[in-house]
Design a protein around this nucleic acid. Structure first.
Length: 273
DNA sequence: AAGGCGTCCTGTCAGC
DNA sequence: TGCTGACAGGACGCCT
């Protein structure tokens, strides 16, 4: 499932491969997750050139040379992949952008949770980011330990892991990296915020930084369906410590898998307290 | 007011 | 063999 490191990987690859490339034609095979509509998307973006790519939280922003931005949320199974022009579309390739460089860019999403939203670039701040929908970016310099602690302490009665995953608290952390951060901090995902010590907040901060940066290094974690722009698996899954693990890499004890709310959580009952 | 759970979707796999 | 149900989870909306 794409979280911050996976979306960042795709953003970097798209910046490398697609800046200045023109969209010649758009084929919409399933338009149910396109806003405002497939017709508007096709009309506005046919003939437009990719100008730059940004990431905010788990959102991928593709800025075009005509003043429009395509906002993409990959949710759980969405991916952008480049294929040689004319490659037979797979079943879940919902939108095909035919490009001027001899490739087709597919928006592919098995479970149809992901969406494409077309907006005027100038409207992004007011319509998407202006309403405190998104917490701070964990890899920005301004995201200090003090900022993180303050954000978490705003919700003192919440359980640690669900709060880490709440995009209005901190942007970009999902199930994998929340498990990893808790493991790094030797803290159980079920702890209430108001029981955490200063030392634990510090370790949690380090855990968030380390796990996100490590994962970006290895092009993201291909748990579930995530693939990068070249339809290749990320390698981070090999470097995970907690998510999906049976044994704790620190003490070699058995990991425990539990449900918090209706979501899975993985932790080591021996090292995480 | 804030916490927490149901919902959307489809493919995979365990179990009978 | 074929069916059923559980599971995967981001983020919104609803309920308590």
């Amino acid at each position: 499932m794409p979280e911050l490191p996976e979306v960042e990987t795709v953003r970097r690859q798209m910046s490398q491969a697609l800046v200045g490339v023109k969209i010649k034609k758009i084929i919409v095979r399933f338009g149910g997750r396109i806003q405002p509509s497939a017709a508007v998307l096709t009309k506005v973006l046919t003939g437009a050139k990719f100008q730059s790519f940004e990431r905010r939280a788990k959102l991928l922003l593709s800025n075009f040379n005509n003043g429009w931005t395509l906002v993409t949320h990959l949710k759980m199974t969405g991916k952008y992949v480049l294929k040689k022009h004319g490659t037979t579309p797979e079943k879940h390739a919902h939108v095909i952008f035919e490009l001027s460089n001899g490739f087709d860019l597919w928006f592919h999403d098995v479970r149809k949770f992901g969406y494409l939203k077309l907006l005027k670039t100038n409207d992004l701040e007011t319509k998407i980011f202006g309403k405190e929908n998104y917490g701070p970016e964990p890899l920005e310099k301004s995201f200090t330990m003090a900022v993180m602690t303050e954000r978490l302490k705003m919700r003192p009665k919440k359980l640690l892991k669900p709060l880490l995953m709440d995009p209005t608290c901190i942007a970009g952390i999902g199930n994998i990296y929340a498990d990893e951060a808790c493991w790094h901090a030797r803290t159980r995902p079920t702890r209430r915020i108001n029981t955490l010590t200063k030392l634990e907040f510090a370790a949690l901060y380090e855990g968030i930084q380390t796990s996100l940066k490590e994962s970006i290094k290895h092009r993201g974690a291909s748990s579930e369906n995530y693939r990068d722009l070249y339809d290749t698996e990320g390698e981070s899954v090999k470097f995970l410590h907690a998510y999906g693990k049976e044994k704790c890499p620190r003490c070699h004890g058995a990991m425990k898998k539990i449900k918090i709310g209706s979501r899975s959580a993985h932790f080591c009952p021996k090292c995480q307290s």
